[in-house]
Design a protein around this nucleic acid. Sequence first.
DNA 1: AGCATACTGAACCATTCGGTTCAGTATTTA
DNA 2: TAAATACTGAACCGAATGGTTCAGTATGCT
Lengths: 117, 117
Amino acid sequence: MVQYAKARLDASFAALSDATRRGVLEQLARADASITELAEKFHMTLTGMKKHVGVLEQAGLVTTEKVGRVRTCKLGLSGLGDEAAWIESYRQLWDARFDALDKVVEELKRKEKDDGE
Amino acid sequence: MVQYAKARLDASFAALSDATRRGVLEQLARADASITELAEKFHMTLTGMKKHVGVLEQAGLVTTEKVGRVRTCKLGLSGLGDEAAWIESYRQLWDARFDALDKVVEELKRKEKDDGE
DNA sequence: AGCATACTGAACCATTCGGTTCAGTATTTA
DNA sequence: TAAATACTGAACCGAATGGTTCAGTATGCT
């Protein structure tokens, strides 16, 4: 299996584990937004939202730029590629396991039939 | 966009945010294992590992069954389908954003060219 | 200049997390 | 029956989380 950056996966899965932060990502997918706008949308103090954005930024899922007194948040460049890849490879292992199980079941069925004949 | 079970995503992304737990999943994809085996593999007390397994079980990623004095852990039935779907839909939004940007850039280029002619 | 806006940082708070130890209980095995 | 094995649960610990308030600073508007 491919080797992923442990810390990076830690950070982005942790970032995604909060419903507010997933909401922020969906929001930013629709349109860039300032901290104030996000804070209002999610009924939270500016400071609180700034922390969430910080977590998302740390995970590379969001980038921000301050022009004048407004900090604008956009989706980051990462695009969750590694995370999707990790999940996908896990899913493949999972499928493999159950395919193997299927084969065992099939084998048992075949045997049963053989015994019966 | 599809509606996902908020709490379930919370639980499974949180479960995935720890490298040890991701390791356990990979391990279980290869073969079922007891708590003791997992604890040894990850250099951790039984109690510690039991907690990790509990988190994974809570998230539906792992199931366990105790026969005699041994609790055997297997991959859960969930298979991370919802999580993959969430990430995928996010990726689509992300792509859409950048496609839109591309169009803007194209439009600007076209205009520039028109002006130049 | 003077006020409002938008963010920033420090400090605090309760809760959760990742881990431990220690003291059980239940099941094998000798 | 006695000892070893495998887990379980409670209690504790330090660090991280998710949130707040409060007191700034920097910027923009009149």
